[in-house]
Amino acid sequence: MAASLALCPGPEIDTLPPAPTLSPQAWPLCLQWLVLIVLAGCAGQLLKHFHLPAGQFVGPMLVGIAMGASGVSLRIHRQAFRLGQGCVGLLVAHSISWAVMATVAQSWPVMLAATLLTVLLSTVVALAMVRFGGITSSTAAWGTSPGAASAMVAMAEDNGADPRVVATMQYVRVVCVVVVGAFVSRLLGVDGGAGNSQGTAMLLGTPQLTTLLLNLVVLVAGVSLGNWLPAGALLVPMLLGGTLQLAGLLPVELPGWLLALAYGTIGCYIGLRFDRPTLAYVWRRLPAMVAGSLLLITLCALLAWGLAHLMHKDFLSMYLATSPGGLDSMAIIAVDTHSDIGLVLAMQTIRLFGVILTGAFIARQVVRLTRR
C-alpha cells in the first residue's frame, strides 16, 4: 500500500513566488521614484516647519543620501540639476540692486584677500590630510579645494588623482558645510523661511503669466549659455536676470512652488551621488575627510569673524561668504536667512574662479611639499 502511494503522482504544486524584499534597490523603478519624491518633499516641508534655514534643500539632500547609500539606481538628470541651479541664480538676481553693486565695488580688495586666504587654508588642510589621513597628496589637494566641486573632480581626473575619492571629499564637505551652516544660522537665532507668513520662497510673490514666461525664457537661455562655464548654470541666469532687473526691463519673479522644486532637485542630485560603492571605497578614509572638512570650516569661520569686524558686517553673512561650500548651497541659505546676498554671492563667485584658475598649481605645490 505504501509502495503504491509512493508511485502515485500527487497533485502538482505551483512554485511560490520569491518572498518580497524590503531592500529599496529591489523595488520597481517607479516605486523608487515615488518614495524619493514623497520622502524628499515631506522632509523639506518638515525642516521648513521647524524653521531650519534652507530646509527645503537640506531635507531632500539627506533623503537622497539615505536612498543612495541603500543601493537604489536613481539618478537626477544633470539638466534638471542645472535648471535647479538656474532657478537659484534668478532668485539671487532678485536681490541684486544698485546699492548691492556699490557695496561690492567698495569691498572688492578685501574680498580678493579673503579668497586668497581661503585657498591658503585649504592647502594647509590638504597637507594635514596627507600627513595624518592616509590620502595621496594629489587627491587631497583636489579634494580640499574650496568650491567648484564638479570642476575639481573633472580636473583631478585629468591630472592623475583618484576622481572617486575627490568627488567624495568634495561632497562630504558640501554636506558638512550645509548642515553646519544651517546649524550656525539657527544658533544665531535666524529662522528659515517658515518663520515668515509665506516663507522665503514666496517672497517673490505669484508673478503674472507674462512675467513668469519671460523669466522662464531667461532661465532656459541662461542655463544653455552656461554649458561651458563652471557653475555657469547658476551664474549666467543670475547675470542675465540681474542685468535686466537693474535696467528696469524685467522684474525677476518666480513662484514659490518652482523654487521649492529647484531646492529639492539640487538636494536630491547631491545626495544620490553617495552610492554604496563610493561609501564602501572611502569608508576607512571617511573620518579623516569629515575631520578635514570640519577643520577647514572652522578656519574659515575664524576668518569670517575677523573680516566681519573689519568690514562691519554681520557674522552670518560673512560666514556664508567665506564658507567652503558650493555657490548654490550658500546662496540658498543666504537668501533663506535674509543675509547680505550681495556679499555672499560676490565672495563665493570670486573664490569659484580663483579655485579653478589656481587648482592645478596648488595641487603641484602640495605634491612637491609632501615629497620633501
Rank of each mutant, 00 (worst) to 15 (best):
V290P: 09
M311N: 04
A301H: 04
L302Q: 05
A334H: 13
V335I: 15
G325D: 14
L295Y: 05
V335P: 08
D340R: 09
L310N: 04
H309A: 13
S317I: 04
K313A: 11
R284Y: 00
I332K: 13
A291F: 12
V290L: 15
D336T: 12
I332L: 13
D314E: 11
R284V: 01
L294S: 02
S329W: 09
M311G: 03
L310G: 13
G306S: 10
W305R: 05
G292L: 05
S317P: 07
G326T: 12
L316R: 03
L316K: 02
A308V: 02
P287K: 10
I332Y: 15
S323D: 07
S323H: 00
P287Q: 10
A288G: 15
G306Y: 08
W283H: 15
R284C: 04
Y319H: 10
S317D: 07
W283D: 12
W305C: 02
G325T: 10
M318Y: 02
H338T: 11
L316N: 04
L316H: 03
I341R: 06
A321L: 09
R285V: 00
I333W: 05
T298S: 15
L307Q: 04
H338M: 10
M330T: 13
A334F: 14
V282T: 14
L294E: 01
L286V: 09
L307H: 01
L286D: 06
D314H: 07
A308T: 03
R284E: 10
H338A: 15
M318V: 08
L299C: 11
G325S: 13
M318N: 00
G326A: 15
S329L: 11
L320H: 08
L294H: 01
H309E: 12
I333S: 08
W305Q: 05
Y319G: 00
R285I: 00
C300W: 04
L286E: 05
T337G: 09
R284T: 09
G326D: 12
D336P: 10
L294P: 01
M318Q: 01
M289F: 01
P324R: 06
G326H: 12
Y319V: 03
T337F: 12
Y319E: 04
D340C: 11
A301G: 10
L299R: 02
V282P: 02
T298K: 02
A321D: 08
S339P: 06
L316E: 00
I341E: 14
W305S: 03
D340Q: 11
V335S: 10
I332H: 15
